Simulated scan of single mutants.
Amino acid sequence: MTETTAHLVDPRELISPEIREKISTTVRAQHPQITEDRADAGIGQMAAFLTACATSDRPLSPSPEVDDYWHAFLMHTEDYDTWCADRFGKKVHHKPGYLDPEEHGGGKMLRQYAVDTITELGFLVDPDFWPEIELAECSQCHANCSDSPLTPES
């Protein structure tokens, strides 16, 4: 019997190193405490989120930190527009605003939808960038959880 493991894609692969460097420089100029490694990981989570937005038929919401990376990418308008056009054939518009919690479930639910969609698309989800989501209680055994309350202690 052969065991198969789902191949999860590192979402940083969605954006070229040159564009990642521009976004990283912008984010780190605004938030000097962010390391290069953290910025690179955040850019990946933002790229996965944008891919989820482009493919979802429901509204999604980024975490506040992922939104910071999106804002930094938007500051490089030509790169952002070209990336969206090449990847999705359309622009993913940033539309901040209020969505009725009765209709959409509220911000936390919209972020959970985002994480679920990112996971369904096969991208790695970094729980550090989605702090209010209870990732340890998810049903995805491949979510790289190490502190799940459901895992017995060794």
Rank of each mutant, 00 (worst) to 15 (best):
A6M: 12
S16I: 09
D37N: 08
L8V: 05
M46D: 02
S148E: 13
A39K: 10
R12E: 06
S139D: 13
L8A: 04
S154Y: 15
E120A: 07
R87T: 14
P101F: 00
A29H: 10
C141P: 10
M109S: 13
D116V: 00
H93R: 12
I23R: 09
L99P: 14
C138R: 13
C84R: 06
V66N: 03
S61F: 10
E3Y: 11
G44R: 03
Q45G: 04
D57H: 13
G106H: 03
L150G: 11
G122K: 14
Q30Y: 09
P127V: 04
G42S: 05
R38Q: 11
I19F: 10
E137S: 06
P32L: 01
Q140V: 04
R28T: 02
A85C: 11
K108P: 04
D100Y: 01
T2G: 15
R20M: 08
Y113D: 02
H76K: 02
R58M: 07
A52Y: 03
V115D: 01
E103T: 10
E137R: 09
H104F: 06
E102R: 12
D128L: 09
T117N: 09
D40T: 07
V92I: 14
Q45W: 00
E65P: 14
E65Y: 15
T117W: 03
R111Q: 14
C145S: 06
G44S: 03
P101S: 04
G89K: 12
N144H: 14
H104G: 15
N144G: 13
